[in-house]
């Protein structure tokens, strides 16, 4: 196990992949079962971005299952990051930006944890995060980029980024290390039982994340047949052999959005913001009690969020397909 190393050993990565059953097989399971694929201390990459296609149900389940001490990476981190810190699920978040969203201001939960040294927010530029996943997906130990140069964003990363000289032109570029997560959590609009995933709208870094990770836990708004996938293979973005579990979870990103299905649940996001505005510690704890630990299952959680707000978000979500 070499996941503590900044760049994981290539031979091990290859060996682990070779040892996996990459056959076309059904992987449909439950949130509870899928959660057992994540071990304490793993590096878990989260798909989607900000308030979009966040694999919220899977994160919710990992918190309920009591997983601890994960390192979590994501392009941009929103309210799910607060829950990761407040629950103890993650001690480090690797991201380019971390707060609920400009409409709600700076995350008080993030501030509380980082300013008091309770957890770490490792900042990288947005493109650097993307290129780290891409290097991981490419099977190379680093890639050169032309950003982060000259800034304190690079300085505080210490030995994690290094200027290198191009062997052809002699110019200096910045080398960013490959990131191969142990697990990727990705939420999509539809997938078949084998894990062939099709996603609509914004892809963010999800394809690179899937290819870079040891395995993908896929949650999907609905499971479709393999025949349906094969009718439009050009729409498939994540191939089945990267996937280890497929869980059907309607409204699996709530209170965040899922493109074409539902917009963010603004009422719920406002409710959350009001709770933590008073007291980031007590507010986050109350939110976890009421909305994560309290509900008996995901449907019960959705009921607590409220049918009216879900319907409003669904109506707005589908509007994207109108002219």
């Amino acid at each position: 196990m070499t996941s503590d190393a900044l760049v994981r050993d290539y031979d091990t990565l290859r060996r682990d992949l070779a040892a996996r059953d990459r056959g076309l097989r059904e992987k449909v399971t439950t949130l509870e079962q899928a959660a057992t694929l994540v071990r304490d201390g793993d590096h878990v990459a989260i798909g989607g971005c900000t308030l979009s296609r966040t694999p919220m149900a899977m994160i919710w389940q990992l918190i309920r299952a009591g997983r601890r001490n994960l390192t979590v990476s994501r392009s941009i981190t929103s309210t799910e990051g607060d829950l990761l810190f407040a629950s103890g699920l993650a001690h480090t978040i690797v991201s380019s930006w971390f707060s609920q969203g400009i409409v709600w201001g700076i995350s008080k939960v993030m501030r509380h944890h980082v300013e008091n040294g309770l957890a770490a927010f490792e900042e990288w530029s947005h493109m650097a995060i993307g290129m780290r996943y891409r290097a991981g997906a490419m099977g190379v130990p680093f890639v050169p980029v032309r950003s982060m140069i000259g800034s304190d964003v690079a300085r505080i990363r210490g030995d994690q980024v290094k200027p290198i000289r191009c062997p052809f032109t002699g110019e200096e570029v910045m080398a960013v290390p490959a990131l191969n997560p142990n697990v990727a959590l990705i939420h999509v609009q539809r997938a078949d039982p084998y894990g062939n995933a099709q996603l609509d709208g914004l892809q963010f870094m999800d394809i690179d994340i899937a290819m870079a990770a040891d395995k993908v836990i896929l949650t999907t708004e609905r499971i479709v047949s393999n025949d349906q996938i094969r009718r439009a293979p050009d729409h498939t973005r994540i191939p089945f052999f990267t996937v280890e579990a497929v869980v059907e979870v309607p409204y699996g990103s709530v209170p965040h959005e899922c493109y074409g299905q539902y917009e963010p649940i603004f009422a719920q996001l406002d409710r959350y913001a009001a709770l933590i505005a008073k007291d980031p510690v007590a507010g986050a704890r109350q939110y976890l009690d009421d909305y994560v630990h309290g509900p008996k299952d995901w449907s019960d959680y959705l009921a607590k969020v409220g049918i009216d707000t879900l319907l409003t978000a669904s109506r707005r979500g589908r509007v994207i397909f109108n002219d």
Binding site: I76, S95, S96, W97, F98, S99, I106, S107, M110, R111, V114, E115, F121, E123, W124, S125, H126, M127, A128, R146, S147, M148, I149, G150, S151, V153
Partner: peptide, 16 residues
Amino acid sequence: PSIRLPGTGGGNDISS
């Protein structure tokens, strides 16, 4: 820090 702000996002890349 006395205040941890949200971070660069794409800002570093764009301005570089």
